[in-house]
Design a protein around this nucleic acid. Structure first.
Lengths: 232, 232
DNA sequence: GCGGGGAGTCTGGCATGTTACATTTCAGCT
DNA sequence: AGCTGAAATGTAACATGCCAGACTCCCCGC
C-alpha cells in the first residue's frame, strides 16, 4: 500500500472526474442551459468514454443541485431555483464565516502575503476592466483563505456550494459599481484577518456575504421577471 | 414527468442507497472496524445485488471520509484519523451555528413544542439510564432544529459530517456526568431559540459544540494511547 | 544471506449488455 | 369529440465482462 493518498491522486484524474469537470464547467457557463437534457450515450460518445463514468459524473452533479435526475426517465440541467441558490449561499456562509474565524487565529506572514498579492491583482484586473479575471481572483481569494485551514473536504464542500451561485450572476445584469464594492469588502476581510480578531474577521466575511446575498436576490428577481415576461 | 421530486423518492430507495445505508451503519457501529477490507464481490453477494451499486455506495462513503479507496488495490474502512474527526466537527460547527442563528429568527410554536418534547424524552432516557436512546434523541434534536430551515442538502451535509464523530465516541470510555451536562446544554440551546436572539442562540450552540470538541479530543487521546500500548 | 526483479493475484475503473419503469402515444371504445 | 388503456419509446439503474495497475512473494543472481 504505497499510494500515500487514497481516493485518486491529482495527477491521475479518472475519466469520471474529467467528465464531471467538463459537464460542470458547461453548466456553470450556461453552455448547457437550464432544462437541457443530458443524454448519457451522446455525452459518452462525444467525450470518448463509456456510459459508466458519465453516470457517476451526473450523480455528483445532482448532489450539487446542478442536475435533476428523474429515475427511469432522464437527467436534465436543473432550472435555477431560488431555494437552491439560497441554500447554497447558506452553506457557503456557514463554512466561510466559521472558516475565516479559525484562519484568523493561525494566519502567518506567508498567508497574508498571498492574500495581499491577490488583492493587488484584483485591483489591477478592475483597472483593466477584465471582469472575468476579477471573478477568478475573487474565487481564488476565498479559496486561499479557506485552504489555510487544511480542511480538504470542507474546501470541496465550499466549492460545491459556490457552483449554483454562478448561474444567476451570469444571467442577471451586472450591477454598476458592484465589483469595486466587492474589492473594498475583500480589503476589509484581509485587514480583519491581519488584525487577529476572529470576531472582527467573521463580521467582515458576514458583511461581504450579505452583500452577495443582496446581489443574488436581485439577480433572481431579474430572472423571474424575464421568465414571466417570456411566458406572458 | 409526474415524479414530483427528482433524485430518488424516499419510499423507493435504490439498491445503491440501501447498500450505502447498510455499510454506513456497520462502519458507524464498528461492526466493520477501522482497516477492514471492503470486498465488493463479497458484499454484493451478501446483500443480493451486483457490484455496481456496491461501488457507488463505497464512493459515497469515501466522500464522507469513512472509507479509503486505493485505486487498483482495494477499499478499506478508514482508520480513525484525528484530522478527519476535527474537520468533521468543523463542518458540523459551521453548519449548526449558522443554522440555529437562522432558525431562531423563524421559530414558531410548533417547532418549540417539538423541541420541548424531545428534551423531555432526553430527560426520561437519562432517568432510565438508556444511553443509546439518549444519543438517538440527541441526534434527533439537532436534526429537528436544522430541518426547520428547509435546507435538505445542508441537512444531508450535516448528517455526513456527524458520521465520523460516532466512532471515537463508541471507542472512547464514557465520561462520567457528560450526558447530564449535554442535556443541560441542549436545554440552554432550546431556551436560546425561544428567546429569539440569534446571537444568543449561536453562542449556546457554539458552547455546546465546544464541549463536544473537548470530549472528542479526550476520546482521540484514549484511542491513540490504546493503539500505542497495543503496538508497544 | 541478501537484494532485486518478474510472474501471479487481487483490485478498482471502465465498457457494455440487460432490465424495469416513467412517460408518451395512439388505437379503440363510448 | 373525448376518454381510456395498451403498446411503444426512451431512460436510469443494474448486472456482468474486461483490463490495467498495484501489491505479494518467491526465485534467481550476487
Amino acid at each position: 500500500m504505497s499510494s500515500l493518498s487514497p481516493t485518486a491522486s491529482p495527477q491521475d484524474p479518472s475519466k469520471a472526474e474529467r467528465v464531471y469537470r467538463e459537464l460542470r464547467r458547461r453548466i456553470r457557463e450556461l453552455a448547457l442551459p437550464p432544462g437541457a437534457p443530458l443524454r448519457k450515450e451522446e455525452i459518452a460518445l462525444e467525450l470518448g468514454v463509456s456510459r459508466a463514468p458519465v453516470s457517476e459524473a451526473i450523480t455528483r452533479l445532482a448532489d450539487e443541485a446542478l442536475v435533476d435526475i428523474f429515475p427511469q426517465h432522464g437527467s436534465f440541467v436543473a432550472p435555477i431555483r431560488a431555494e437552491d441558490v439560497r441554500e447554497s449561499l447558506f452553506i457557503r456562509t456557514a463554512l466561510e464565516v466559521e472558516g475565516i474565524r479559525r484562519v484568523t487565529l493561525t494566519a502567518d506572514a506567508d498567508l497574508m502575503a498571498r492574500l495581499e498579492d491577490n488583492l493587488a491583482a484584483q485591483a489591477a484586473a478592475l483597472q483593466s476592466g477584465d471582469l472575468v479575471l476579477f471573478y477568478d481572483l475573487d474565487e481564488a481569494l476565498h479559496a486561499a483563505i479557506f485552504s489555510a485551514l487544511k480542511a480538504p473536504r470542507a474546501l470541496r464542500l465550499l466549492d460545491a456550494a459556490r457552483a449554483p451561485l454562478d448561474r444567476p450572476r451570469r444571467i442577471g445584469l451586472p450591477e454598476a459599481g458592484r465589483p469595486e464594492a466587492t474589492l473594498a469588502e475583500h480589503r476589509r476581510m484581509v485587514d480583519a484577518i491581519a488584525s487577529g480578531d476572529p470576531e472582527f474577521a467573521a463580521a467582515a466575511m458576514r458583511a461581504h456575504l450579505a452583500m452577495v446575498a443582496r446581489s443574488v436576490e436581485r439577480e433572481l428577481t431579474q430572472i423571474e421577471t424575464a421568465q414571466t415576461t417570456a411566458r406572458g
